[in-house]
């Protein structure tokens, strides 16, 4: 039981982070806090992606000069490279989204003098 929990810990953490991010997006009216929530949610999904590619005892997937395992003289197991590259891409994208969101929050503050998205709202209906 405990082994299962420890083995699945990365997934539990990622779900918790997604939940934290979503709750910030749902309940926080401050635009900066919403951006933080989105960023946390993105990190949670990145953890999920990285966790799917990990194998126990594996090394980074670099084939050049890869070490051989001592017991079987075969190559050591490597982590899957594809989700890692997905994570890298998604980090870059979430950086762009966070930066854009923060700059829009800053502009909204300049216009309305408040970061509260409900007070500065003008569009409805």
């Amino acid at each position: 039981m405990t082994a299962e929990i420890i083995g699945n810990l990365p997934f539990i953490v990622s779900v918790l982070m997604i939940m934290v991010g979503l709750s910030a997006l749902l309940f926080k009216k401050n635009m900066i806090k919403m951006a933080v929530g989105l960023s946390v949610m993105g990190s949670g999904i990145n953890i999920f992606l990285v966790a799917t590619c990990y194998r126990f005892g594996s090394i980074a997937p670099i084939f050049t000069n890869a070490p051989l395992s001592e017991a079987s003289k075969a190559a050591v197991e490597m982590a899957l490279p594809v989700p890692q590259s997905l994570t890298l891409t998604s980090i870059v994208i979430s950086l762009a989204v966070t930066a854009l969101m923060l700059s829009l929050a800053m502009l909204a503050y300049r216009h309305s003098g408040t970061l509260d998205s409900e007070k500065s709202r003008r569009l409805k209906g």
Binding site: L25, L26, K28, S117, E118
Partner: peptide, 17 residues
């Protein structure tokens, strides 16, 4: 309908979820 269309971002995300 107009009561639903509040225009708050949090509500948009609420409806999506």
């Amino acid at each position: 309908m107009l009561a639903i269309h509040t225009g708050f971002v949090n509500d948009y995300i609420f409806w999506f979820l």
